[in-house]
Design a protein around this nucleic acid. Structure first.
Lengths: 191, 191
DNA sequence: AGAATTAGACCGACCGGTCTATTCTGCTTT
DNA sequence: AAAGCAGAATAGACCGGTCGGTCTAATTCT
């Protein structure tokens, strides 16, 4: 039951952080939503900040699972795997009501005010990037991308533009910005 | 002296909102920073929300001034004008300590929780976009871009990717993401 | 039994916002 | 030009509510 409560808090916490952001999410509201007493919360997490950081970890576990699933799919050419990952992510955003990406949300809200969160979020983006870059490297090797292409730069570019499009998707409540961004990127990268 | 206090609050408010975001910015902190008594604040603004919305207006006045300056510069070809605007914006970010864009920050933090802010920020992006699109249209007319190019789509793409790169610049405290994004965009758009 | 977990009353600090009093400021009237 | 006055602006004490966090006691596991 112990780990259960923790997981339950993290799961609901991710969803509430996505909608409300960090500072607008009150502990009391989270406890109300999960029917958890305060004692439990502070038994499992040492502070709100600790909770936020662990929620990011939980989010990243999902992201890495998606990457495992897509980038490891050898039945597709590497470039297609990358695109597939983002298309699945778009689908995930849709089911959540177009609230965008937790990393982008918390990164924007907290990076000016908390060095801890700033570094954490940056490290998460960088981890995703490394995996995408590896797949891009394979694409170059297979001739899907021009030999001179910089896989690290192109991976970072993709992640960054994706985040911008995700914000816009959130503002417009519409997936078009994500789709148009992917179209442009893959059309330009692999003509 | 009246409009003076208001402007002073808005100017300092923009800077503090950029760093702290909305919910982490307390009225008391703003009043302390500007040596303003509370009575003045609530004389000039009806609420914190009203203040936030007016701070966005003040920010947009600066953006439009930058657009006037760059996009109206007939000594440059249209495509160069657009790029010049973003390069100046990057320079502005640098002087502020790489805190990124206020629209991106408030958009991410508030769009899940306030329909008013969501619409406001979206309308601001859309306004910038219209002006960029007009300049792109001129670029097409002058043969700088392929005749079939969609100026509105390309303008939105540029704004969106810019915002993503701005977030990353904030996270890394480094302008490289912005530069690499512009390079990719203009290289791909006008080969 | 003893450790892990749940339970929730309680705390001081701070939040956005209100209220009344005072001080400026510019216009009207003479 | 001086006096008087009304509205704008400043000043800050004050308010109820909510914040993150603590503490002790009860309960549930192994």
């Amino acid at each position: 039951m112990a780990a259960d409560t923790r997981q339950h808090l993290l799961k609901e916490g991710m969803a509430m952080l996505l909608r409300h952001g960090y500072h607008d999410l009150g502990i009391a509201a989270l406890l109300e939503a999960t029917k958890t007493p305060k004692g439990s919360f502070y038994h499992h997490f040492q502070s709100k900040e600790d909770f936020g950081l662990q929620a990011i970890d939980a989010y990243m576990a999902e992201v890495h699972a998606g990457l495992d699933h897509c980038l490891g799919d050898e039945s597709m050419p590497p470039l297609k795997r990358v695109r597939h990952f983002f298309e699945l992510t778009e689908e995930k955003y849709r089911t959540e009501g177009y609230l965008g990406c937790l990393l982008g949300g918390l990164g924007q809200e907290l990076s000016g005010v908390s060095e801890v969160f700033r570094r954490k979020v940056e490290e998460c983006f960088s981890a995703i990037e490394r995996r995408v870059a590896a797949c891009l490297r394979e694409a170059i090797h297979r001739g899907e991308l021009a030999p001179g292409t910089d896989p690290d730069g192109m991976a970072q570019l993709l992640i960054n533009c994706w985040e911008g499009a995700a914000l816009r998707t959130r503002l417009r409540q519409n997936p078009a910005p994500l789709r148009e961004m992917l179209d442009f990127y893959f059309r330009s990268a692999a003509p």
